[in-house]
């Protein structure tokens, strides 16, 4: 090699020249991840959404103190998560599958049940009131789920529900606002946000505005669907009715009850409640 330094300098010059061409192209390229806001998005791309549900289920597993069916135990694929049921994000179902293990099948099975959680329990059952709420242990997984899939609305509403249970309203509002930025038309997040304002900040005016917006969003999105989410509509109307009754706006409360009557599985109850309000029994 007669002049290795010269060759190296030549190669370096070629690299620098090519970089001036490639770098601006890469910055404008649609597939570039360098513009992504978070490290997770940069590293995992869209594949992160696959893991979001896993971490959401992990939170439910923690809610059951580790007593949770595996893919080998799961009997019903449509089984809803208890953390989501508690938060009102999905309809409650009969809790008839709590003993998914059944009777031991053999001696190894019987013996092995001493070494993993094999009894149904919920996080915080029987915990000391003076101690910090054990439900906080769910939060990392829910946060991770929301970070991995910002379009997974349940992650925001369920997290906010548990934060509300722990009376950590500021964190709940901040997290829900993050959710709204990612999902501007979500009436579920608005419903939960209204609850935080009503319950935590005792700000009924803001809560009403938010719930009315949630109702508008529901009306914009759901009626045209083959199976509209009536469960959410009932929750929004219930919150609005309660609020209007507290503020003694009876006409408005009755109008929401009329709306509920059309979608509720128990319209007679709604009618009865309307009559009571009309008669001054509220």
């Amino acid at each position: 090699m007669p002049c290795p330094y010269l060759c190296l300098a030549f190669l370096l010059t070629i690299c620098a020249t090519l970089a001036t061409y490639v770098e601006p192209w890469y910055q404008n390229w649609a597939g570039s991840r360098s513009q992504q806001s978070s490290l997770l998005t940069t590293v995992m791309g869209d594949s992160r959404r696959l893991f979001a549900n896993h971490f959401f289920v992990k939170a439910d597993e923690y809610f059951h103190n580790g007593y949770y069916p595996t893919i080998f135990d799961q009997r019903d694929d449509a089984r809803s998560l208890h953390i989501a049921e508690g938060a009102g994000a999905v309809e409650e179902k009969d809790e008839g599958e709590t003993d998914f293990l059944g009777k031991p099948k053999d001696w190894i099975d019987r013996f092995g049940r001493h070494f993993y959680p094999s009894h149904h329990a919920h996080l915080g059952s029987g915990h000391d009131e003076d101690q910090p709420s054990p439900e906080r242990e769910l939060l990392p997984w829910l946060r991770l789920s929301a970070t991995l899939d910002p379009q997974k609305i349940e992650s925001y509403t369920v997290t906010a529900y548990w934060l509300r249970q722990m009376k950590r309203y500021d964190e709940a509002v901040q997290f829900l606002r993050d959710g709204l930025r990612a999902n501007p038309s979500s009436y579920e997040i608005l419903l939960e946000l209204g609850r935080v304002y009503a319950e935590g900040r005792k700000d009924s005016t803001t809560a009403r505005n938010i719930w009315e917006l949630a109702l508008r969003r529901w009306n914009e999105q759901e009626p045209q669907k083959p199976k509209p989410n009536k469960f959410m509509l009932l929750q929004i109307c219930t919150e609005l009715t309660r609020l209007e009754l507290n503020e003694k706006h009876f006409d408005k409360a009755i109008s929401y009850l009329e709306l509920m009557k059309k979608t509720s599985p128990h319209p007679d109850e709604m009618q009865k409640r309307s009559e009571e309000i009309k008669q001054g029994k509220y």
């Binding site: 906080r136 242990e137 939060l139 946060r143 934060l163 950590r168 964190e171 997290f175």
Partner: peptide, 8 residues
């Protein structure tokens, strides 16, 4: 995580 340092 939500300013909670006792999550373990």
């Amino acid at each position: 995580f939500f300013n909670d340092h006792s999550i373990v």
